[in-house]
């Protein structure tokens, strides 16, 4: 999944001479918290609703008038993303810099924006259910070929795998969480166990029989 797949376009942006008051109104009208600031097509900064509120607040060391331009309070030289960046790169940058958005720039012009909420949407798309499906959780040995063996199990049965997520679990194993297009996950779990997979979900039922 790439930045271009999740970014909002076009980005709603303002010019540097826009007043804080007008910038704040723009944010409220669109229900957003981040505005790229540009001169012509070129990105020159980012201003957030917190920048605007703090600059004009009694808490500020020297509060300024809401009629001043955003160029006075914006962050200059903001971090940006390329439409072709993987979303995890965007997430890593935002996490490391503790920032809430990345303007997306291509050929030196602003083409979109990615915010923390867009990354949460991406997470939901990767983990979530958008089709009727059943969930299976399998513990795999952390070595080449194990995931292929698991995928082959479903392929042989003509079953569609809607999503698959894996994460390391200790040093020697990997947990794979799959959503498959089937109501029969319990029967699949039995078959997986017969094929020597360790199935974490669904579990065996807890009664003596």
């Amino acid at each position: 999944m790439l930045v271009r797949d999740i970014m909002r376009r076009p980005a709603i942006a303002v010019a540097g001479n826009t007043s804080l008051r007008d910038a704040y109104r723009t944010m409220q009208e669109h229900g957003i918290r981040h505005l790229p600031v540009r001169e012509g097509d070129a990105l020159v900064g980012v201003v957030t609703d917190r920048d605007l509120r703090l600059a004009t607040s009694a808490l500020a060391a020297a509060p300024i008038s809401p009629d001043r331009p955003v160029s006075e309070v914006m962050s200059r030289h903001p971090e940006t993303a390329d439409p072709g960046d993987p979303v995890e790169d965007a997430a890593r940058t935002m996490r490391r810099r503790k920032i809430g958005c990345l303007p997306v720039v291509q050929d030196e012009s602003l083409v979109g924006i990615v915010t923390g909420l867009d990354l949460l949407d991406a997470l939901l798309r990767m983990t979530g259910v958008d089709k009727p499906s059943g969930r299976l959780e399998v513990r795999l040995a952390d070595r080449p070929g194990e995931l292929a063996r698991l995928a082959g199990f479903f392929g042989e049965r003509g079953l569609n795998v809607h999503s698959i997520l894996t994460h390391a679990e200790g040093a020697a194993s990997v947990r794979a969480v799959l959503r498959v297009g089937s109501i029969e996950t319990r029967l699949l779990a039995e078959e997986l166990r017969r094929s020597r997979f360790e199935v974490v979900w669904p579990p065996e039922k807890p009664w003596p029989r």
């Binding site: 259910v129 009727p132 499906s133 059943g134 969930r135 089937s182």
Partner: peptide, 9 residues
């Protein structure tokens, strides 16, 4: 719960 069982909703 759909967290555990088909169809997920």
């Amino acid at each position: 719960s759909g967290q555990f069982l088909f169809p997920g909703s």
